[in-house]
Design a binder for these strands. Structure first.
Length: 119
DNA sequence: ACGCTGACGTAAC
DNA sequence: AGTTACGCCAGCG
């Protein structure tokens, strides 16, 4: 069931393509983690790569990279955005409250691709 | 062409 | 129980 994502281009030969597909599917006002995406792709140990792939994502891309945080709900990626507060601003703009770079009620907003996409 | 680094997570000591 | 080391894949020097 997994593996056959290829929701965007179809050339899902690379891990990065799958990552972008999943991130792009994150619902508005929801967040997910690098590990969840990696686990959905079949390699939970590849969580590092997920973040690295997102680094290639430009803000003008359709990929909501700001909705991806680490497993603690910490905005580790905020440092990589235009401004350290950009990520927080965008999340708050979606109704997610951030306190001290940490997502409030993180598990409540957490979106699990494995539970949602691979029913 | 080769090697290192990097937005994490888990296992092992 | 806390700390250290490793694994994964892709982009860049």
């Amino acid at each position: 069931m997994k593996k056959s994502s290829s929701l965007l281009k179809g050339n899902a030969s690379t891990f990065g393509r799958d990552v972008l597909d999943v991130v792009c599917l994150i619902p508005f006002g929801r967040v997910t983690t690098y590990g969840a995406i990696a686990a959905y792709l079949g390699s939970k140990k590849s969580s590092r790569i997920v973040g690295w792939i997102l680094n290639s994502v430009k803000e003008h891309s359709a990929i909501p990279a700001h909705r991806v945080v680490n497993r603690f709900g910490l905005l580790t990626a905020k440092n990589h955005f235009k401004s350290p507060t950009t990520m927080q601003e965008m999340l708050e703009s979606e109704g997610i409250n951030i306190e001290n770079d940490l997502v409030v009620d993180f598990e409540n907003y957490f979106w699990n691709p494995t539970s949602t996409l691979s029913i």
